[in-house]
Every structure is written in structure tokens, then in C-alpha cells.
Design a binder for these strands. Sequence first.
RNA 1: GCCCGCGUGGUGGAAUGGUAGACACAGGGGACUUAAAAUCCCCAGCCCCUGGUGGCGUGCGAGUUCGAGUCUCGCCGCGGGCACCA
Length: 854
Amino acid sequence: MSRYDPAAIEPKWQAAWEEAQTFKAVRSDDKPKYYVLEMFPYPSGRIHIGHVRNYTMGDVIARYKLSNGFNVLHPMGFDAFGMPAENAAMASGGHPKDWTYSNIETMVGQMKPLGFGLDWSRMFATCDPEYYGQQQALFLDFLEKGLVYRKNAVVNWDPVDMTVLANEQVIDGKGWRSGAEVERRELTQWFFKISDYSAELLEALDGLDDWPAKVKLMQANWIGQSRGLQFAFSTVDGPSGFDRIEVYTTRPDTLMGASFVGISPDHPLARALERESEDVAEFCARARKGGTTEEALEKAEKLGFDTGITVRHPFDTAWELPVYIANFILMDYGTGAIFGCPAHDQRDLDFARKYDLPVLSTFVPLSGEHALPEDSGIAYVPPKSEKVRWTRAFDWTEEATGDEAIEAAIGFCEKNGVGQGVTKFRLRDWGLSRQRYWGCPIPVVHCAACGVVPEKKENLPVRLPDDVTFDVPGNPLDRHPTWRDCTCPKCGAPAKRETDTMDTFVDSSWYFARFTAPHAATPTDMAEAEYWMNVDQYIGGIEHAILHLLYSRFFARAMNICGHLPAKSREPFDALFTQGMVTHAIYQTKDANGRPVYHYPEDVELRDGKGFLKDGTEVEIIPSAKMSKSKNNVVDPVKIIETYGADTARWFVLSDSPPERDVEWTAAGAEAANRHLGRVWRLCAEIAESDAPSTNEDEPLLREMHKAIHDVTMGVDSFGFNAAIAKLYAFTNALSKSRAGADAKRQAARVLAQLMSPMTPHLAEDCWQMLGGEGLIANAPWPKADPAMLVEDTVVLPIQVNGKRRGEIEVPRDLSKEEVEKRVLTHEAVVKLLEGGQPKKLIVVPGRIVNVVV
RNA sequence: GCCCGCGUGGUGGAAUGGUAGACACAGGGGACUUAAAAUCCCCAGCCCCUGGUGGCGUGCGAGUUCGAGUCUCGCCGCGGGCACCA
């Protein structure tokens, strides 16, 4: 008998699918549609094992839905703009375009042998002018509807390289290349008005029944609806034009504990003082050092500068509070000014102790020991739902929860004309400008006479120039000799193009819609979008839980407003599954400047839990980190495919680990998966040739078969791929040991092939053919379990005594509770433990368990 | 620092609040073989023990419950996100 030979059968069946156009998505009215999408990859150059896991999951769903009679749309593309292409150009002198397209070619070449049921005819890359031209058209439509605007915002500025840095390029507050201390600098940038949709994006989460609760929670927290008080302090002898400082607080109940006012270094008042005083200017320059991330701001040493200006407390005009400029207050949040209540905020307390400011408690616990914050150095911040005793309040009762006090404080302030209660959101508008080359050009023109003018749609796409260099830092579009030159679309005078390009999140915020009509002359084709949208099942990494998904939800709304998507697609993803990441240790050493250098796993030899390079240098091992190109800890699946075949790789990434959980990659186990597939192949080949007569073991085998259909179907439906595979192992074992006749075995083996076909499609086709199945297994209807074959006549009930298992009895499945109780009480172990007494309680859970309480 | 997860044998993991460890990997033993490979069969949480109807056991500590891996609270450890990595 011949052997399982994936190298021979895999190309064969891929050619068969190609010829039959099995996976081409076709619109037709006779069938329901199903759109399954995995988050498209960045073309880093090689696929890694995380991709294989991600796309295999999607493929299982796609093939399963095809077998269930759906028209399936399962496309693939590339998220192709972004920094790594420019970094590669800087490092090795090529062009980002060449680097990107060559990477795409390589990756497609690596993906095709995996046998994914994809409609490759719909493939595109976001750096295709055809795609980004339509993205520019969307931008112009958004601009017309008032969904885009310009304002100032801070960026990371490298003062040595004279360039804007991404957060990733800021390491410990310093530029990654120059090592210079990074500054926060303001630039005029384009923004999407996502904040207008804060309330809607928050409320609509409730309707996303098939999204993971944790993702909805993360998004809700990110949007961050808060109820608070906005009011103004009046200044004592403030500079002219600054007689008021507007603040927003979510804790107005602590206003009587205020001890200072803090303003951002970019607050208009700070700006004004900066012009007057060198000391202030010096402080503000220092306060602007460091990166822009929230994390950097939170962790940075809190610095303040006493402006000498004071404000009056709104409820006691004799009470004056100092105004500090503070580095941890960002102009982008709220009003750029806060009041500090050290007793009930740790950051404010740290600040107060540093600058010797008073600490006034406004409430204390109802009972128990309480060290006052001014003594302990620990702010008292109980949950807002907890009742506390108020010691410095306005007019509410002595005992109240934080929530009650906040509402009371807002009411009191409104009644006394001090500000008003407002609902605010944490979500900020989405800054889309990037000072980089390899992105979608923002299609506007700057005209001396007309100002900012949108490019005409007939002139789209505004193409990136090819003749650029990356030998010096900065945006090549800025220094291109001619690219900027154009005429004003409005007045025809000579004008200059915008040189900023779009954030790559824009590219990935609508690709799912473009897949429904990838070559339409408009961003979408409404008839196609109407049919294929929404994405029925979206699959991707948990790392995209907030930004990508939130931006896409906003884009879908904006596209609906502009007539590019139907109203039903305002929420574009009906169901979401977040797969866990494939992690791998990072191996790092430090260079002469103390900056990390990352090494590939294949360059590291492991001995006694320590890692060494070939030259003997020991490397630091950082366990279990997200696989990331920049950390060199990616695992290449190509070798596994070459050695064992695609089906082994697919089977292996689905087995063992639950899909939503992170999995630490280990090479061991691929061989075992391969052995099992070989066993299935041999078993099918053997059964195909058997002519054994029927036996009384036929029925037990068929019962096992129906159980397998039921369990595997449930597993696939609920993304329990690892559980489904465990059932398939069990069913294979049962089939292999069964002494049933050839007909029953053939029937069972065909079902085994079908149940395996979404996971190991090539092997399944081959077995199907050997077993005399008709046509392609990919098109065969999914088997159905017969409910009558699933029920057993008797059940085994474990008997617990006081919650501990002490025995078991076998009873007819539908034996009455009373009868079960009677039999349990005669059970040897129970009789012994009862010692002649009566049980205190007897709990019978029908079909599950019995618990005797003595 | 803030938000969200995760933690079960040597390993990956299974388990609608109901027999903890299914299924597999690695390991041990055996069959077949001149031998090996391949294949097949058996064993296997930890501890004590000749034997069990024994003790312990799901990161740690409490709690709710007839019953907790699962629910609640508090810790510890690890991971993801924090708006310019994608």
C-alpha cells in the first residue's frame, strides 16, 4: 500500500479547487451569503506562524459555511503602507515600493501552498494607487460632510534629526537614532471628528451580541463617558485676558479639598506667561521634554512651576489657590486645566507633598482605622459606590456614596451659579496626518489666495512620486524638487500640495468594504456592499481590540453618511473573534550605547535554560512576548510546510491551544500531528479496500459517528477548534479499533473525512476520493447528526458524600428522582458513611450527579 | 501609572456551578524485528502505602454554595492596549 504523501496530494487538490473555482465568491439569489474575514497582514516579508493560525481559523469557518450551503466571501489583501518599508529603504537603500511589492509576492507564494479557500481574484494592497485613490475620494467626501478638520496637536520631535518620531521610535524619552531627548511639539494636523460619535459608538456596543465582552468593555472604557462639572476659577490679578481659568472635573465632590490649580504647559495662560518670563519659558521647555504617550506622561516625574498667580475658591472668595504649570496635564484633555485635591488623588497628593501644598480630606471611611493622607502619603480613593462620611461637603448629608455626592455637588454648583454638570468623553479626535512618505497622500492643496483647497476628484489618485531618497531623515515629499508644485483647483494659481500622508489606520478602516467590490470606480459598489456586507465573522488579534476596531466602526458610519455603505453596515462586523497571539521568547543583547539588539531564534543556542550566540555571547531571554518583526522573534512556518505539508501545519496550529488564548510556540509536536494524519490516511485506504460483512458492532460505530458529527459541529460553530480536534482523535481511535463491517466503516470514514475537511482539506479530499465520495468534499453537504443516535439508555451517576466522590451507580436515563434516591441510599459507600443515620439532605441532579449530605 | 485579560500534571490543554486532568506531546514498559525505523498494545497528577472505601491537589489567601478550576473579594505573577508599530 502506498503512503500518505502530502507533497503529492496537496498541489493536486489545490489545482482541482482552482479549476472548479470552488472559492470564487459569486453573488446569487438562491443562497444565503457568508462573509468571513481575517485581519489582513502587514507585508513584513515572511508569513509567520501567527498568520498561519489566524488564516487557518478563518479558512475552517469559510469551508464549513461553504459545506452548509452559503455563498462564501473569503478574501485576502495586504495592509501595505507603513514605517517598516521606509526603515528598510533607509537601512539598505532600496525603495519602499519595491520592498513592499516584493514582500507581498513572497508572502503570497508562502500562503498559496497552505491551501486556504480564498478568492484570490479580489486581492489588493492598500498601497495600490487604485485603492488609495478611492481612499482619497473618501477623504474628500468626509471633508465635504464636515467629518475632517485641521487643528494643532503635539508630536514627538527629534531636535537633532529635525523629524517627527513615532511613539515606537521613542525609547526612554530619547530618539531611536539620534539618542536626543525628544520634545513635544505642536503641528497643524488633519483630524477625523470621531468624537462627534462618542455616544453612538458607546451605545451601539450593546447591540454587538457576538463580540467578546472584554473587547466591548475595553472600547467602552476607551470612549470613557464621564459625568462631571465644568466651571471657572476667577484669577486674582491674572494677566489681562485671563481673568478666568476654565476647568473640568469628574470629582466636584472634592472641590472643598482643592489645594491648587494645574495648567498644561500648552495652556494659553502658560503660553502668555512664557513670553513674559524666562523662568516660565525654561520650565515649559523642560516640561515639554519626553514622549507624547499617556504612559510616558503618567510615569514621568511630576513637575510643577508656581506661576505666582492665584485663583479664588468659588465657594470662599477669601480662599486663594496657587496656579501651577504642570507637565502631566495635556492640552488635548478637557480644558487643559485641573484643580488638584491631594487627599483623594494619588498623583495630586504626590504633587502636593513635593511642593508643600495643603492636604484637606473631604471624606473619611464610615468606620475603622484611617490614616489621613497627609500623614500616610496614601490618597484615600474608595470606589465611588462606597458610602463614606463627609467632613468637608457643600450641603449633602453626612453619609453618602461618592456617586451620590458627585450628583449633589453638581446640583449645588448649578444652583449657585458655579458651572454646570456636563457629560464628557475621553475619546479624542483621530489625528490622521503623518509626516512620512510611505502612506496615502492627503488630497488637498495649499493656495496662497484660497487657503486649503480639496483636490478635484477627477485628479485622483494623487500619486506618490517614485523618485525619492531616504538618505536623510525627514519626509522625502517635503524636499522633492517638483512633486509639491500644482495649480489651485479653485483659482488656477500656482499652489503647493499637502505633503502629509495618512495614518495607516485609515487604510485598514475600510478595506473590508472594498473587498466587496475591489475594482469599482467608486470606493464601494452599493449593490455589492448591500449583498456581501456585513462581515459575518471577523477574526483577528486581541491587540486590535481598541484602535483598529473603533476606527473601523467610525469609518463605517462616515461611509454610510457619504452613501458608500448601507445603513445596516454602520456596525460592519456582526461577529468578532479575537484569537490569542503566538508568542515566542525574545533574545536580546545590548549595543555599545546600551540600546537593545534582537537576535533570531535560529541564531541562538539554548543550554541549561540560558541562550548563547554562535560566538559564545550570552543573550538575555525575555519569555513569551508578542511576535514582532522588530523584535526578531518571529517563527517561520515554511520549514514545517516543506517537511510535513500544509495539512500538518494547519492541524497543528488548531490543535491543543484554545484559539482565543496566547500560545507559546514550540517546534515539538508538528511531527506527532503528521503521524496522526498519516494514520488517518492509511485507515481510510484500508477501509476503502475492505469487504468485511456487517457485524453487531456496526451500530456502536455509527453511534460514535453521530456523536462525532454533533461534537465537531458544535466545536466549529463555537470556535472550539482544539476541542473539535480532540473529538476527531477519539473518533479516529474508535474507528480504528472497531470490528464493524465494511459498509459501516466506509460510512464512518467518509464522515471522518468530512469532519476533518475544514482543517485538513487536502487529506480529506484524498480520503473522500478513495472512499468513493462524489465530487469534491469541499462541495459536499455537511453531515447531520441523528438525534436518536445520540442518546444513551443508561447513565452513570457519580455519588458524592459531602461533596466528595465516593462511588457511582448506573441507572436508566429517565429513572425518577425518587427511585434514584432509593438506590443511592442502599449504595455500599453511602450506607457505610451514614452509619445507620439519616442523610441531612439529598441532592439529585438528573443525569448528572447525586450529593448526600450527612 | 491606567484599562482589559490570563494562571489546571513534566508539557499543550479538557471540564453548561456537578466524577478535575478528556484528547494529545514528551516519558516509561511491552509486542513485532537479526537490529533499527515504522506500526501496534499497556502505564502514567502529587504524597503515603504491602494492600486504600487513604491524604493532598486547578498561582496564593479568604468568602458564597449541598457542591467552586468555574461565582465574589483581596493579593502575587505573566501578557495585551495606552491614541504616530501594525
